[in-house]
Amino acid sequence: MTKATSCGGVVIFRGKILLLYKNYRNKYEGWVLPKGTVEAGEEFKETALREVKEETGVDASIVKYVGKSQYSFNTSQDVVMKEVHWYLMMSDSYFSKPQREEYFVDSGYYKYHEAYHLLKFTNERQILEKAYSEYIEFKKSNLWGRKKYY
């Protein structure tokens, strides 16, 4: 068994959530949140911001850590146990550009209920729920849009 660690973001702009559509040779298809593997010497926050930028072209800023998800999958050689650390993030524009090299063919911002139903994986829907409720709390407290949160 191999262990792997990734980090990603629930990126929100004007109440909408950034999603990516992946189509890998028509075998793997679906909407996902941006995330990727931690590189040597990198902090989780740095990984999350870098991966969001690489996969979507979005310059996001971290608002708050929202938790982790865990899952496993099989490769031809091994079983991989994956842990993903998630951050609530803010963007300052609707711009996004999917990273073609990673087989992302579309990206965009969606209303919460659309995003929730579009997401392929249950664990990402759970993270979206948690992150969005945090976002609503920031909005109620009139804190969303301030530059420092933590």
Rank of each mutant, 00 (worst) to 15 (best):
M1I: 03
T5S: 03
C7T: 11
V10G: 01
V11F: 08
V11D: 01
F13E: 00
F13M: 02
R14I: 00
I17Y: 04
L18V: 10
K22N: 06
K22M: 11
K22V: 10
Y24W: 10
Y24D: 04
R25K: 13
G30I: 11
W31C: 03
W31T: 02
V32N: 12
L33C: 10
L33Q: 04
P34M: 12
G36R: 09
V38T: 14
V38S: 09
G41T: 12
E43R: 14
E43C: 08
F44V: 15
E46V: 15
T47A: 14
R50K: 15
E51L: 14
T56I: 08
V58A: 06
I62M: 09
K64I: 01
Y65R: 09
G67N: 04
G67P: 06
K68E: 12
Q70D: 13
Q70N: 13
Y71V: 02
Y71R: 10
F73Y: 15
N74L: 09
N74A: 09
V79E: 12
V80M: 06
K82A: 10
E83S: 15
V84F: 03
W86F: 10
Y87V: 05
S91Y: 07
S91N: 13
D92C: 07
D92M: 13
S93E: 12
F95M: 07
F95D: 08
S96Q: 09
K97I: 03
K97T: 07
E101G: 01
Y103H: 10
Y103D: 08
F104Q: 02
F104D: 05
D106H: 13
S107M: 02
Y109A: 05
Y112C: 11
Y112S: 07
Y116M: 05
L119K: 05
K120H: 09
K120Y: 07
F121K: 14
T122L: 13
T122F: 08
R125T: 02
R125H: 03
I127P: 00
I127N: 06
E129F: 07
K130C: 04
Y132P: 01
Y135D: 01
Y135E: 02
I136V: 14
E137T: 12
K139D: 00
K140I: 06
S141Y: 09
S141K: 15
W144Y: 07
K148F: 14
Y149D: 05
Y149C: 09
Y150P: 02
Y150W: 10
